[in-house]
């Protein structure tokens, strides 16, 4: 049995892994298909104007409000999303749960379910964009520094050390002063700007550890190029710590966004904005947000924990508190 198979087996037997992955997948689906779940405009409509597909995504200008959308497709055959309210469309304020509003509405009459679904998109988009950038940038720099060594190693490693301990909130504040528009991308850049260093450190450590190994020497002797050695023989070792770190980074980024939104310069329409509404004494939106936040953070936490543990063969071998009993027996 190869190590990979062992790892897979350990993972698939893990309750934490299954729960975490399932919840994360649900959130990811909600984020990707938000317009199918809650929007002002229909998913598909066909009638006099021909067939219209997902107008909320492709032609938002033609659908300024919910009423306009209803009017436009009055006589058409249409498939409507699950909830016929977008995150910004206003109806009766503070309504309880009903078929039209599965989670009710907030103090301004916005549908809470719609806000949650679209907030998931903001949260995941931020986390994924920031992590993608951080992992690519960090891995490249870390691998370069570790493999080349010497002067270039110093050039990368020293700033990375500094960046890792630099307060993220300061970077976010600086970026927000430059781009006050509450967009996802600028916050993602700010988060990535502090996150890459951790990845770079991990990758660099692994590259240095295996750079002098015999199998690397053998591969070089067989005529593999440096790039091939790095890609096929060294970097796979760095994959695991990077995956675990990235998974653990998801909840911390989502929580950072919530904190930043509370301070008033986060992402428009995110869960953090809903949380911050507690300041006005209305608990409906914050409660929904904290449950969603809890589910997302808890799920990625569980998944990361399970993956991290499954990757450490020694811990996985010792089940429950058997170590105590074994010691007694010996």
């Amino acid at each position: 049995m190869r190590h990979r198979d062992r790892f897979r087996k350990r993972l698939s037997h893990s309750f934490r892994m299954r729960t975490g992955a399932l919840v994360l997948a649900l959130f990811a689906l909600a984020a990707v298909f938000a317009e199918f779940l809650a929007a002002d405009a229909p998913v598909v409509a066909w009638g006099d104007r021909g067939v219209v597909v997902l107008p909320a995504v492709f032609r938002p200008a033609a659908y300024p409000s919910r009423e306009a959308a209803e009017e436009r497709h009055k006589n058409d055959t249409a498939i409507w999303p699950l909830v016929r309210y977008g995150p910004n469309s206003v109806s009766e304020p503070s309504v309880g749960m009903s078929l039209a509003h599965p989670l009710g509405t907030d103090m301004h009459g916005r549908d809470l379910y719609a806000r949650l679904v679209h907030g998931a998109r903001a949260a995941l988009l931020l986390a994924v964009a920031a992590l993608l950038f951080a992992v690519v940038f960090g891995s490249l720099l870390g691998a370069f520094a570790g493999y080349v060594g010497g002067f270039w190693d110093e050039v990368v490693a020293r700033p990375a050390e500094l960046v890792e301990t630099f307060p993220a909130i300061v970077v976010v504040a600086v970026v927000r002063a430059v781009y006050p528009d509450q967009a996802v991308w600028s916050l993602a850049v700010a988060v990535a700007a502090v996150r890459w260093a951790e990845i770079a450190r991990l990758v660099r450590a692994e590259v240095i550890r295996f750079g002098g190994a015999e199998f690397v020497e053998a591969a070089r002797a067989l005529g593999s190029s440096h790039l091939r050695v790095l890609r096929h023989h060294i970097l796979p070792h760095a994959l695991r710590p990077v995956i675990v770190t990235a998974l653990f980074a998801v909840p911390s980024i989502v929580l950072l966004e919530a904190a930043v939104s509370f301070l008033g310069f986060g992402v428009r329409g995110s869960w953090g904005v809903m949380l911050a509404e507690a300041a006005s004494g209305n608990w409906r939106a914050p409660l929904c947000a904290v449950l969603a936040l809890g589910a997302l953070v808890g799920a990625s936490y569980l998944l990361a924990d399970a993956v991290g543990e499954a990757l450490d063969a020694r811990v996985a071998a010792a089940s429950r508190s058997a170590w105590w009993a074994r010691g007694k027996k010996a």
């Binding site: 904190a259 953090g272 949380l275 507690a278 904290v290 936040l293 953070v297």
Partner: peptide, 12 residues
């Protein structure tokens, strides 16, 4: 408390 995040803890 970690999930409640400082935001909600503070507001509560």
């Amino acid at each position: 408390p970690y999930l409640l995040s400082p935001v909600l803890l503070g507001l509560l």
